[in-house]
């Protein structure tokens, strides 16, 4: 406990890279399969966008937004979910780790147990989603009608950082429930992947109540929607305060703090398996 927070953070980051690096080396020994799966990951995560393009062969806009604007929203949320999934996505296997007893083994090693759960079976192929999202986002950035001043560049970068943190928090928060019941991992998916699916479209296609829920309850609207309104210079279609457009860091801090609290509580209430 004497170790300051910064040192602990640095050590846990290093340990994560060490453990994850080991898994990357292991997967690299099955090169062909690894490359095929990375490719598959790019294609799978790209289906959603192709589906949007198919829709746009029938319409010119959705919820008042054109294809380029939607590509901006889509790319942003894909990059954020992809990065969060890459780093902490494995946390959803917590229930399995508990059942198999490998969680006990992690508890007696000098590395944060969350770091170990996330790094275990680390799959670099998940970069596929990040790559796919980046491509769409890059295309959108070159096409959207925006005057790129420093403020907009800053908000765009901040959007990617905060969005990643929001999804990271939701992943960990959802997984923490597996300390109580090890069977509910799919419910958490509804919030992470579901949150991602919702934010692929302009929120104007949803009723007002849904948008409120996505703002104040499960704040995925801060991943891309509010920053995008700022970047594209669109007044809030629901008449919500413009301050929300710059509030993503607040949402990220709140979600991550809640996640940390839930995780710590879970670890302290952990019951282990067997006798």
């Amino acid at each position: 406990m004497a170790e300051p927070l910064a040192a602990r953070l640095a050590w846990n980051t290093r340990a994560f890279l060490m453990l994850a690096g080991m898994w990357v080396r292991v997967s690299w020994t099955y090169r062909a399969s690894f490359l095929l799966m990375t490719l598959a990951s790019v294609v799978i995560t790209g289906i959603d966008f192709v589906a949007i393009m198919v829709m746009f062969t029938n319409v010119d806009s959705l919820g008042g937004f054109g294809l380029r604007d939607i590509a901006f929203l889509y790319g942003a949320t894909a990059v954020c979910l992809g990065l969060a999934d890459l780093v902490v996505g494995n946390v959803e296997r917590l229930g399995r780790r508990i059942r198999l007893g490998s969680f006990d083994a992690m508890m007696v090693r000098p590395v944060g147990v969350l770091v170990q759960v996330c790094a275990d079976e680390f799959a670099i192929r998940r970069l596929g989603r990040v790559a796919q999202g980046s491509l769409v986002l890059a295309w959108a950035i070159t096409r959207v009608d925006v005057d790129w001043d420093p403020a907009r560049v800053l908000v765009t970068v901040g959007m990617l950082v905060c969005g990643t943190l929001i999804f990271t928090g939701i992943f960990v928060l959802g997984a923490s429930f597996q300390f109580l019941t090890t069977e509910g991992s799919e419910v958490a998916n509804a919030f992470t992947y579901g949150g991602n699916a919702m934010t692929q479209y302009p929120l104007t296609i949803y009723p007002r109540e849904v948008v409120r829920a996505l703002t104040f309850l499960v704040p995925v609207a801060f991943v891309n929607w509010y920053p995008t309104l700022f970047v594209l210079d669109i007044p809030d279609p629901f008449g919500l305060p413009a301050a929300l457009q710059l509030a993503s860091p607040v949402a990220a801090v709140v979600v991550c703090a809640l996640a940390a609290l839930a995780w710590r509580t879970g670890v302290r209430r952990y019951r282990s398996t067997g006798s």
Partner: peptide
């Protein structure tokens, strides 16, 4: 089921 493993798990910090 006598409590052996539970004791060990408390001694190692696994169980609170």
């Amino acid at each position: 089921g006598a409590g052996k493993s539970t004791t060990i798990k408390m001694l190692t910090g696994i169980l609170v």
